[in-house]
Structures are given as C-alpha cells and as structure tokens.
Design a binder for these strands. Structure first.
Lengths: 117, 117
DNA sequence: AGTCTACATGTAGCCTCTCTATATGTAGGC
DNA sequence: GCCTACATATAGAGAGGCTACATGTAGACT
C-alpha cells in the first residue's frame, strides 16, 4: 500500500482537486485531508503541490476563494464555480478515456478491443 | 474520441513502452504504430517522446537494442530484458493501484470504499 | 529528373507541473 | 518554553513529454 508515484499524478491533480470541492467548499488543509481520506491513505499530496495548484485553478476561473477566520486561524476557502463544474465533468470523462486507453495497452484483451473504425 | 492529454501520460510512458515489447521485439517506429493500434487510435505519441524514452529505458537496463537493416532501412530493434519484465510487472500493479486511487477520489462510492477508519 | 509520401532515427530546447525545502504564524497541551 | 496540530505561502529543483528541426532511404507518380 505504498503511496502513488508523484510523476503519475501529472495532469490528474486538477481533476482530484475539483472533485473534492464538488459538493462542499473546503480550505487547502482540509482538501489535503479529504484527498487522503478518500483514497484510503494512498494520496499524501504535499502542501507545496496543493496551494499553488489551487491558485492556478482560481486564476483560470474553475475555483473561487474567500478568507475566513475560524478559531483564530485564517483559512482561504475554495468553492467550485460553474465553469469549474463544467471542467470537472470534462476531467471525469477524460479520466475514463485515459484509463481505458492505458488499460487497453497494458492489458490487451480487456476493454477497447480494437473496435477501430 | 480526441487523443489523450500529453500531461496525463507523465509517468505512464514507461509502462506503455515496456508493455508493447512484452511478447515481441520491435523498433521505434513500429512501437509507435503498435501503441496507436492497441489504443484504437487514441495514442499518437510523437517520435520526440518515444526515441528518447527508449534510450532512457535501455540505459537503466529494462530494454536492450541492436541494429538491423531491413529493405535498405536501418532499424534499432528493442527487446525487453529480464529486468524489464520485472519492471513491467511492477508498472502493471502500480497502474492498477493508481487507477483505483484516482477513481476513488473522482467517483466516490466506486471501489476503495474507505475501508480504513 | 524531380517531387512526394511513407519509413526510420535522432537531438536541442521549451514548458509546465509536482516536489522539496523553507518561512511564517496561531492555538492548545504539557 | 517547547512541541504538535493547524494553516498558508513561495522559491527553486527536477523531470519527462512536447515542438521543431535535421538527416537519410525506398518507391510511386509525374
């Protein structure tokens, strides 16, 4: 039950982040915990990955954020925008496509059985 | 049926390459075609990705190569070493783990249902 | 002969995302 | 005071896939 190879995460981080914010706004720290919980402990994404990624996602309009103070601590809470929701849907189908493609190469005979066309 | 996002391929290229060489040695150009065929046309990996990757894989001992001339054209044919076969097995289980983890975050309720606590 | 396409390999340099390491600060337990 | 958990942020490194380019053969068509 080792954790996931960092390189493999490339290009999938956005989908993960958008996904945990789908039903409720969360702040960065809570997002990291949610990722870990949902993955059964396999995803230990460092803060140096998450915070910049969240800012990037906000910059492109998929997320929006606002500051809040809870128990004397400051949090920047992120929520999914409608644009982000659309993006998430796209990321989900892209993931399914991707997983199918990789699986078809790695384990021939499973899935995509050369329907060609 | 767009092709796969290049960034998403990060860290999975090795597995793909090792996998197409599992049962038969192939040269670079044929590897690219095999990848495309096995994926139903979804994987159009550029030569600038494949050739350097093959060399890297040879450098670390997962592949071995030799030159051949077929029909007046020179080919460098790669084959899987025993070390590469072991690596491929590892890549396969890493992929299954990875796919399960991503799916568990992207589509909660499917697979890895928080067996932990 | 000249041109075009398919076959075939290779490199330089860019891009961009993830990671490591570090910095900053609050709250609460010991 | 010191340590841990909570909470955010940035600089710089590292890596690998991509674009673009360079090189060359074979065969078809004009």
């Amino acid at each position: 039950m080792g954790d996931v190879n960092p390189d493999a995460l490339r290009g999938h981080m956005d989908a993960l982040l958008l996904s945990v914010l789908e039903h409720e706004p969360l702040h960065g720290y809570a997002i990291i915990e949610a990722l870990q919980e949902r993955s059964g402990g396999a995803l230990a994404v460092p803060t140096g990955t998450v915070y910049p990624a969240l800012r990037r996602l906000e910059r492109v309009g998929y997320l929006a954020s606002e500051w809040a103070t809870v128990g004397g601590r400051k949090r920047r809470t992120y929520r999914l925008t409608s644009s982000g929701a659309k993006q998430l849907a796209g990321e989900r189908s892209a993931w399914r496509e991707f997983a199918e493609v990789i699986a078809s190469v790695l384990e021939p005979g499973v899935g995509r059985t050369k329907t060609t066309g």
